[in-house]
């Protein structure tokens, strides 16, 4: 690997900017995502910052079972993000539909709509799990490029 690619990879690992998207979640997971950004857990020490526009974000942190109403919106938001981009499915609903699985109004899981890089189960997920997931995603990114 050339030194330029190494520097770019390093910068990507050290500065993941997040975008939060609620795909019909009950708000439990969303509160926990916000929790992970509070001073107690302090995601900023890994360089993660919550951004509010898809153009600035690297990681789409999506929660909820993905209602049919939200499908075209999450697709559009995903396409608005600049490459390289990753998706974190946060919560049991986002991973597989959870208790809403099979319901007429949901598509059961974000991976039915857009590619997902990492699944974080839990109902709701703990903030530690989100942090652990973020670290593992970055680790996998580092390992896959070697």
């Amino acid at each position: 690997m050339k030194i330029k690619d190494k520097i770019i990879l390093w910068s990507r690992l050290k500065s993941p900017w997040l975008l939060h998207f609620n795909g019909g979640a009950c708000n439990g997971c969303d509160i926990e995502i916000v929790d992970a950004l509070t001073p107690k857990y302090d995601l900023e020490r890994f360089g993660a910052v919550l951004k509010s526009t898809p153009r600035h974000a690297d990681i789409l942190v999506a929660s909820g079972p993905m209602t049919r109403q939200q499908v075209k919106r999450i697709k559009r938001i995903y396409e608005q993000m600049p490459e390289p981009k990753f998706v974190m499915a946060v919560g049991a609903c986002a991973c597989s539909g959870g208790v809403f699985d099979g319901c007429y109004s949901v598509v059961s899981g974000i991976d039915k709509v857009i590619p997902v890089s990492i699944y974080i189960p839990g109902c709701p997920v703990r903030p530690e799990a989100i942090l652990d997931g973020a670290v593992k995603l970055l680790g996998a990114l580092e390992a896959s490029s070697k």
Binding site: I7, I8, W10, S11, R12, K14, S15, P39, K40, D42, E44, R45, G47, R55, D58, Q80, P82, E83, P84
Partner: peptide, 23 residues
């Protein structure tokens, strides 16, 4: 009362943004 970003944070942000796709 939190830890805060490491010293190279601003540099990493800039390099990452420079290497990203421009839409």
């Amino acid at each position: 009362n939190r830890v805060g970003p490491p010293w190279y944070q601003a540099l990493a942000d800039i390099i990452k943004l420079l290497s990203k796709e421009v839409i």
